[in-house]
Amino acid sequence: MTLAARNVRWAAGRTVIVDGVTVAVRPGQTLGLIGPNGSGKSSLIRLLAGLRLPVAGEVVLDDTPIGRFGRRDLARRVAVLEQHALTEAHVTVLDVVSLGRTPHRSALSLWTDNDDRIVSDALSQVGLENRRDQYWHTLSGGERQRVQLARALAQTPSCLILDEPTNHLDIQHQIEILRLVAGLPLTTIIAIHDLNLAVRFCDTIAVLSGGRLVTSGEPMEVLTEALIADVFGVEAHISTSGLHGRLHIQFAM
């Protein structure tokens, strides 16, 4: 499934946050959105997910504007993982993952064996099948994100949108989550802070600055020392890693 933003623009009050951005991700590939704080990554993510409506331009899913899909219809195709899901409710892992079935169920339909199977599969994909009765508030940050990922998978989407899903995690759990996501056969868009992780896990990268798209393409072509100096304002040294053969970015401190 192809997801694309065409010339989208979004403003909060009079402040333009996303200013005529065009990005696209091909079926099964992973697009990374990078850029400094306030560059419009999160807002673009919300536009792509259909959580906000652009004031100009459009977001299309397989060439159909997402506004043409019903809400539930869209939620069966596109799942969203937020930075930091919070709740005070006393819910279990199973409760949270079961929420993923919401767009597939009508107001009064009963829980089916099929729902059961999909939720169990989602739990085992993130390695939490033995924790289904544990309470949300007893989980660590990394486990919570895995539960939310399982919830997203239970939506059986073809497209996954993630807004800095590893922001609050230590490096081990960052890699764990990103590996899980990269291993999924889904079209994925991910806003991500860490440039080395972006290089490692994304097929293409789009660089945002001040709400505008600076450039996009394969990480090898896009990420240059000049671009990093320009967009992030830091001096970087880029080499090819002897470990994985991809780019390795070091920062002058």
Binding site: G50, R71, A85, L99
Partner: peptide
């Protein structure tokens, strides 16, 4: 009762509910 399932979807806030297809 008709909206019970939608209320469950509010567990993680309005954006989360919206992304689950809730109006």
């Amino acid at each position: 009762i008709w909206h019970a399932r939608a209320l469950d979807a509010f567990t993680f806030g309005e954006d989360a509910a919206r992304s689950l297809g809730i109006a």
